[in-house]
C-alpha cells in the first residue's frame, strides 16, 4: 500500500459524508436570504404588497370620522 493509497484511505475517513453535506445544504437554503424570496415560498413582492396594504388600511382607519355638528 503506497503513500498515495494510504492518504486516499485516510481522506475517506475525514471527508464529510454526502448525507451530512445534504443536511447542511438544506439548512442553509431554508434560511431567508436578503433580496431573495421570503421563507415559505412567498413571492418577491409579498412584503411590499403587504406593507402597502397595511399602510392604506391604517390611514383609512385612523382618518377622522366626519360629524354633523363639526360643519
Amino acid at each position: 500500500m503506497s503513500l498515495d493509497d494510504t492518504l486516499a484511505a485516510w481522506a475517506a475517513t475525514v471527508r464529510l459524508p454526502d448525507a451530512a453535506a445534504a443536511d447542511i445544504y438544506q439548512q442553509i437554503i431554508m434560511t431567508p436570504a436578503p433580496g431573495g424570496e421570503a421563507f415559505g415560498g412567498l413571492g418577491r413582492t409579498w412584503w411590499r404588497d403587504f406593507s402597502a396594504g397595511f399602510a392604506a388600511r391604517m390611514i383609512t382607519s385612523t382618518r377622522p370620522v366626519p360629524v354633523p355638528w363639526a360643519a
Partner: peptide, 27 residues
C-alpha cells in the same frame, strides 16, 4: 470542508465552520 478539517483536525467541527461559510455565501 478539507480546509477546516486541516485547521481543526475534526471533520464535524469542520462541517460546522463550512456551514457558516456557505451561509454567508447564500446571503
Amino acid at each position: 470542508h478539507a480546509y477546516f478539517t486541516g485547521r481543526t483536525g475534526d471533520r464535524w467541527a469542520a462541517a460546522d465552520l463550512m456551514q457558516e461559510v456557505f451561509m454567508r455565501a447564500w446571503q
